[in-house]
Design a protein around this nucleic acid. Structure first.
Length: 488
DNA sequence: ATGTAC
């Protein structure tokens, strides 16, 4: 595939064939190289689909009703249907909602809590902090939470999101102000969610899960943007807690249920299926409407999940450091596997679009009314999770990002190596010991899982951030380092 | 990502 350079950190995949718009890939030369080494039409573990992130950018560009471009963030790597790091905005008239644009872990995202603690408060108590968090926050594959829901309770979670958790006494009212959508997505319909999906939520609310999900105690190493840091209440050496998780089994089941339904819809409406998960339905069709109502419910499930986990973190840290719960505040909570209706300027005209972000964080810039009052002037924070052994970053939305990428940003380092390959190359136990020597206390529910998450299996997060900032999509606010990491 | 399987 021929790419045209259109900027220092921007490349265009020109419109050709059945593409309705061009592809825009925001990467540096160095990050572009591995993308070009994939083989088009190559075999993959999933059954012989084209397993190449750039092919996926092109496939998304072929979907009906896509607006402006099929966009890839600097952490782009192959996903199901959409690339991870992919953004696609669609016109509600004639456009589609695509399962691959959301993925299985609906509203997977990050919440960051601020504390009044500084690095020195935690540094020599890391083992104690790690053990307490590990014991109190349920995590790992198939883990079950401390809360049991009834069927009616699950419906309430799906309708109310984080507010449900608050009603049950998990969290502080001010938390809601600092969650994307205030923690509650409109248009969620529990009736669009299967009984099987709901059954998976009965015992799973308030659990971290596995894979790349984690709970991390971090300190602020460096502040790059004083004004934004002031608005966010961040200082150097300050202790933060990052919670990375999603909608667990429920979101996964919504995705599984949607596959055959949207496959039928794709055929019914005559939309070519270019990859198993790139099935879709017109936004205004009954099938599209049902899928959206189910996804919105899944989004609420993840908001509620992170809200409960934030409470569990407070239950651990407050007594340990003699703090009131109110001293541990929600900086922000924002997802990176979502689809939603948003207002955007396209060619000078304000329009409502359905924006898919798959492994891409919403990153609204200065002035947007969706931002909390305290953040309105600088844009809301976004969280870029590095790996167990490397830095994470706090960035913010920008006006350039609003124009070029529908207000989107990066979400992490992005995998550079498959999970299978990483598992062969590293041993989890050795990895945890190595990290301990570097001052990072890791508690993992699965050593095999930890090996898959080896820092070496990811791209260099510093380069990914450099590209996002260089392209102007996001602005750098602060760099943070891990002290304690709980892995699923 | 995922009760790694219909």
């Amino acid at each position: 595939m021929e790419l045209k350079r259109i900027g220092d950190f921007a490349w265009e995949l020109p419109r050709a064939g059945e593409m309705r718009v061009p592809g825009w890939i925001f990467v540096s030369e160095e990050l572009l190289r591995p993308l070009l080494s994939g083989t088009e039409g190559g075999e993959d573990e999933g059954g012989g689909h084209e397993w190449n992130a750039l092919v996926q950018v092109r496939n998304v560009a072929c979907l009906p009703g896509i607006v402006t471009a099929s966009i890839a963030m600097p952490d782009i790597h192959p996903g199901y249907g959409f690339p991870i790091g992919g953004v696609g905005a669609f016109d509600p008239d004639g456009g589609v909602v695509a399962m691959g644009g959301v993925g299985f872990d609906i509203n997977c995202g990050v919440r960051v809590l601020t504390t009044p603690l500084s690095r020195s408060d935690v540094e020599d108590r890391k083992e104690e902090v790690a053990d307490s968090l590990f014991a109190h926050v349920p995590a790992g594959l198939g883990s079950e939470g401390k809360i049991r829901l009834t069927l009616n309770g699950v419906d309430e979670v799906l309708k109310k999101g984080a507010a449900f958790a608050l009603e049950r006494g998990y969290g502080l009212p001010e938390d809601l102000m600092y969650i994307e959508e205030n923690g509650r997505m409109d248009g969620a319909d529990p009736g669009a969610v299967s009984a099987r999906a709901k059954e998976r939520e009965f015992r799973q609310i308030g659990t971290l899960g596995s894979g790349n999900h984690y709970l991390e105690v971090q300190y602020v190493e460096e502040i790059a943007d004083r004004a934004a840091a002031r608005a966010y209440g961040l200082e150097e050496d300050q202790i933060l807690v990052a919670i990375h998780c999603g909608s667990r089994g429920l979101g996964h089941q919504i995705g599984q249920d949607a596959l055959p339904e949207l496959e039928r819809a794709s055929r019914k409406y005559g939309i070519p299926i270019r990859e198993r998960e790139l099935v879709c339905a017109p936004i205004r069709s009954p099938e599209g409407g049902k899928y959206l109502a189910a996804v919105f419910a899944g989004i609420n499930c993840a908001f509620a999940n992170r809200q409960v986990i934030a409470h569990l973190v407070r239950e651990v840290l407050a007594p340990l450091f003699s703090l009131p719960h109110g001293a541990i505040r929600t900086l922000y909570d924002v997802g990176h596997n979502n689809v939603k209706f948003e207002r955007h300027r396209v060619d000078g005209e304000e329009r409502t679009l359905l924006v898919h972000r798959k492994g891409s964080t919403r990153a609204f810039g200065p002035g947007r009314r969706e931002n909390p009052d305290r953040y309105r002037a600088v844009g809301h924070p976004i969280f870029v999770g590095g790996t167990m052994g490397t830095a994470s970053y706090i960035l913010r939305g920008t006006e350039v990002g609003m124009e070029k990428a529908f207000g989107s940003g990066i979400h992490g380092a992005g995998r550079a190596m498959s999970r299978a390959k990483a598992k062969k190359r590293w041993r989890g136990q050795e990895l945890v010991q190595d990290l301990a020597k570097q001052g990072i206390t890791v508690r993992a529910h699965s050593y095999a899982g930890a090996a898959e998450e080896a820092p070496g299996a990811y791209k260099d997060v510093d380069l990914v951030v450099e590209a996002a900032v260089g392209a102007g999509l996001n602005a750098l606010v602060a760099k943070v380092r891990p002290l304690v990491c709980i892995k699923g």
